[in-house]
Design a protein around this nucleic acid. Sequence first.
DNA 1: GGTTGACCTCAAGTTTGGTTCAGGTTAAAG
DNA 2: CTTTAACCTGAACCAAACTTGAGGTCAACC
Lengths: 162, 162
Amino acid sequence: MEAPNPAVPWDRDELTVGDLAARSGVSVSALHFYERKGLIASRRTSGNQRRYPRETLRRVAFIRVSQRVGIPLADIGAALATLPGDRTPTAKDWRRISQAWHDDLDARIEQLSRLRDHLTDCIGCGCLSLRRCALTNPHDELAEAGPGPRTLLVEGLEPDGA
Amino acid sequence: MEAPNPAVPWDRDELTVGDLAARSGVSVSALHFYERKGLIASRRTSGNQRRYPRETLRRVAFIRVSQRVGIPLADIGAALATLPGDRTPTAKDWRRISQAWHDDLDARIEQLSRLRDHLTDCIGCGCLSLRRCALTNPHDELAEAGPGPRTLLVEGLEPDGA
DNA sequence: GGTTGACCTCAAGTTTGGTTCAGGTTAAAG
DNA sequence: CTTTAACCTGAACCAAACTTGAGGTCAACC
């Protein structure tokens, strides 16, 4: 009595967009959007409705987790594009593509920590000198990579304390 | 011979928008934008041109640093609005308003660190189970505050390992 | 006093990550 | 066989943080 019952959605081997939405917690419109962006793919029924392989559930979970970590959709899509197209991705595949996120997170945590410490030094003291302050000068230890504004100050002179 | 020379821009006590742009590294259009949003203010000359007090230089520096730290402009504006309007802000004023950023950064660093550690556990192992994985479940230790997607998964069941 | 560069305003465009709506089709249940 | 829920497309809209462009003014130099 526990045999596969095609009437119960999670026993079918394909999911409708509604099933996928319900089980991933992502709205149907967002799933359409991901599909337009190439992050997920579906086959179409004769009536032009989407059907997703179960594996898509994991892709969507990966997308949401990655977004949570702060990765833009375009980057997530690029990472997903490196998964094999001819077989279901394995644990090893997922491990590989998530390694990049891990490194990225490490770097961002590092940078934020430095920023936090400089905050105390620079804004905290009220100086915020454009000339001296490490915060306003992205050239030295503060990374130029990262999601911040592209350039902060190229060369600023601050001759007095005004 | 080192007396104040009004011909040299940084010896005048007001700055044109171009001066401010050059010295802050922020484009003129962005400065106009900040002004429309109320983050900075200017007086107008008889010819309707903007003139900024030197102090604006520090405000702009504060804005860029805050953005670097990931604070939205609206929040930066709200913080700047708490500065005294009747006098030039002191070191103490700046220290106070930057304290909030410091706390915010601490929290975000904490959250990112947890996220990173879970990444290794969850995506790294390839499971990414919607049911079990802490990453996909925002209810327990992973904060619901923060700049991530609003809700991740309300209740997802994953009956098999597909 | 004329040319040039900096300034002005307002409107529209850009990107990211979607949501909402209109108008129409499909599929499943009764 | 009808009704209703779920699905389809495409276009429009949202917010943030700006940039770009058009069309016009101002000011500084020679």
